[in-house]
Amino acid sequence: MRRACTVWALVVGMGAAQADAPNSIDPASGAATWETHAHGVALRLTQILPDQARAFYISRGFSAADAELYATACVYMTVLRNDAAPGALNFRLADWQVRVRGAPHVLRPVDDWLALWQQRGVSESARIAFRWAQFPAEQEYELGEWNQGMLALGLPPGERFDLAARWQVDSKTYEAVLTDVRCAPR
């Protein structure tokens, strides 16, 4: 029992497996994917190339200038999935930590993006599309639940960063870490 507890504490304390190189690169687009599994949870970031983001948002009603702001903000298709966590997990993006060359970098909340789009006169239908296309700002996943959505890091093209995704199960905090992730080039 004691040994099991020690092993468990080590596992929780160590956080996640780390990934320096992308786990895969899509041969058609060149988009890279970083993925890790920790404490029964899968985390995956796949680059959304600026051209892909431009096409997506322009076709949803954004002007080219507005789409450009988002497309060049280091966007990822993000998946978080409860495959085998010890219970229902809860997370808030506000608790996730991004570090660029060791310095903390704050993720821009979806509400801030929405306020920016309103200020720039982006249509309501385009703002609704934007809001629902983003990775949720907070969520609860029971076993087998997951989401896939866009997450903009707000970093320049080509930048490198580390991401610690955090969640709670029964008031205990867990994390999965991806290191040396790269923003797509311009």
Partner: peptide
């Protein structure tokens, strides 16, 4: 054109 980009061969599995 407007579908959210994703690598088709590497999609997360649907659950049951």
């Amino acid at each position: 054109l407007a579908a959210m980009p994703a690598a088709a061969e590497d999609l997360p599995p649907l659950t049951h």
